[in-house]
Amino acid sequence: MSAPASTIQDAIQAALATVDDPEIRRPITDLGMVRSAEVGPDGVVRVELLLTVAGCPLKDKLRTDITTAVAAVPGVSGVEIDFGVMSPEQRQSLQARLRGGGGQEPVIPFAQPGSRTRVYAVASGKGGVGKSSVTVNLAAALAAKGMSVGVVDADIYGHSVPRMLGADGQPTRVEDMIMPPQAHGVKVISIGMFTAGNAAVVWRGPMLHRALQQFLADVYWGDLDVLLLDLPPGTGDVAISLAQLLPNAEILVVTTPQTAAAEVAERAGAIALQTHQRLVGVVENMSWLELPDGSRMEVFGAGGGATVAESLTRTMGAQVPLLGQVPLDTRVRESGDAGNPIVLADPEAPASRALAAVADRLAVRRESLLGKPLGLRPAGR
């Protein structure tokens, strides 16, 4: 004897509610994507699903996930899925649902008082110190710990994060919202996703500011624990825009042991004094090369990271720690070129362990103070 139709129908709806949209990471039933789901006398369930855009790149994954979930319902003999596309009105409704209201101007969620997202801006004084390598490996390590992580490739001229993270997907647009592609559990956005081939970006200050603003406000990031920004080298327009758009961002300085690099890194970190941002610490990259006999060759000298940390501590009047020293390892470069960060490709490598240790120190979820008593009392007269 088969189960009552209403019981099967309820079970089907419950099964569909377990399927998340791969980009938005919320149940397809909550997003208004399931237009209908009916079970026939033969036990075949026919689902009509509305995609956000006609060329949805994750259509096959949706088909697989829905089929797997619904086929597990007792009494279901088969699953057929008919894909449609949302109307402009339905997309606007989805956008309003995701933003928590309708028609308002996009805001930067990470700059709001109730935000629980820790924002780390990875900076360096000069190029070539491995800032992007450090960024993508920290992101991958944090995501591997179960945290929700996003990366903004804010190095507009020298964007390299998508390749190094293996994010070869393209952003999906829902009205004026952008769904970022993901790789290794990390959401990522980069100007390189919007340019043809390897075309150069020739922009000046106002355009750079607007691009960063769009990456932060127009991209649907969801509830992130950590957002990392890979900044361009130096103290130029993007660093200034970041201070304006995300005054709560914490600066992570990357340097090499080389004296010249360390001196420039100090200037990059010292900008936090002018922008009133917190310096979370210093990472020394390419610290040494481990030789086959177990000895170390200090290719770029020694002590640069400690020197930067000590100098910034004096400048800021607060402790700026040296968070870690990452040894020079060709596997870091090889893994980056392959789009598989070394912390995932070879977790036991010395460079991986050093980067994972830095990630451990950054993996602190920020608790919102919104609505919490702070225990403050007015000063007596």
Results as ranks from 00 to 15, higher is better:
P171G: 10
V219T: 12
G301E: 11
Q325N: 01
L323N: 12
H184K: 09
T52M: 08
L312G: 06
P41K: 10
P292K: 04
V280F: 00
P4N: 02
S87L: 12
V151Q: 04
F110R: 06
R63S: 14
Q13W: 01
R204L: 07
D293L: 04
G125W: 07
M297I: 08
V219K: 07
R163W: 01
D168G: 13
L165E: 05
M1N: 04
G197W: 10
S241K: 10
G125C: 10
A69G: 09
I342C: 07
L227E: 04
I191M: 13
A196E: 15
E266K: 01
V343L: 02
A144L: 01
R361P: 01
G294M: 07
L246M: 04
E334F: 09
G100L: 03
E290Q: 12
Y157S: 02
I271T: 06
Q213A: 15
Q104L: 11
D82S: 05
V188L: 11
G380M: 07
V45D: 00
L273A: 13
L231G: 06
P22N: 02
M207D: 05
G128N: 08
S241G: 11
P171E: 09
G269H: 00
L16G: 01
I8T: 15
H184D: 01
Y220R: 05
R278F: 10
G222C: 04
P378S: 08
Q325S: 06
L51Y: 02
S368T: 14
A359K: 02
A111T: 12
A272P: 01
F300D: 05
R163D: 03
G146T: 08
V34T: 11
G336Q: 13
Q319T: 14
G102E: 13
N248V: 08
M164S: 06
L212V: 00
A217S: 15
F110D: 00
V202N: 09
V149E: 04
A139C: 08
L369M: 13
P347Q: 06
L245C: 05
A302P: 01
G55Q: 08
M33C: 05
M193Y: 10
D155T: 09
G166S: 11
A139S: 10
P180G: 06
Q319F: 13
R118Q: 06
V188R: 00
M33F: 04
V174R: 03
A154Y: 11
Q214G: 05
G192H: 12
